[in-house]
């Protein structure tokens, strides 16, 4: 099968790969680029753990054809850390016990980042709305919501 060359920005770095027709972005990231931070959950857009940001907008990478991100910027959890330091959201998730098994955490963090990037001071309802596409099977939603609110208020207040 003929492969298509594909170039895009991955966490601020230019990458070039060859993809089979029909390859989804999740497979491209995990198997061709080796970024294991987006997780394979359901593979059909129901769980949200494969969520990534494409040009700053939240997308389900399992439902995104890899070729559609040509020339665009893809951000994953792997790029969230600021150098050696945790992103405020990561710090807040850790401090608020917002991860149990951790499998939904990559998607939750990307959904939370998409929210805070466009709305730095969200209400509780807006946080709930923002992570509504992400399923946490440990059902630890409350600490996750609290963590996002804590990160939004600079880690001070607890909603």
């Amino acid at each position: 099968m003929a492969k298509t060359p594909l170039q895009f920005r991955h966490n601020g770095r230019d990458v070039a790969i060859f993809v089979d027709g029909g390859t989804n972005l999740l497979v491209a990231l995990r198997e061709l680029i080796g970024d294991m931070t987006p997780k394979f959950g359901c593979g059909q857009g129901g769980c949200g753990t494969c969520s990534v940001l494409i040009d700053g907008e939240l997308h389900l990478s399992c439902l995104t054809l890899a070729e559609t991100v040509a020339g665009r910027s893809v951000e994953t959890l792997d790029g969230l850390k600021e150098g050696p330091n945790l992103h405020p959201l990561q710090r807040a998730f850790a401090d608020n016990f917002a991860a149990q098994c951790g499998y939904c955490t990559p998607g939750m963090l990307m959904a939370a980042k998409a929210l805070l990037d466009r709305n730095p001071q969200p209400s509780r309802a807006e946080v709930v709305e923002a992570i509504s596409g992400n399923i946490c099977r440990c059902t630890g939603y409350e600490p996750i919501i609290n963590a996002v609110l804590a990160a939004a208020s600079g880690g001070r207040a607890r909603a």
Binding site: K39, D78, Q90, F93, P106
Partner: peptide, 19 residues
């Protein structure tokens, strides 16, 4: 008390079966 696996979870580096 911070959980030992928390840093791996929030950085996406905890290895799961599929990884």
């Amino acid at each position: 008390t911070q959980r030992q696996d928390m840093l791996g979870h929030v950085t996406g580096t905890s290895p799961y079966f599929d990884d």
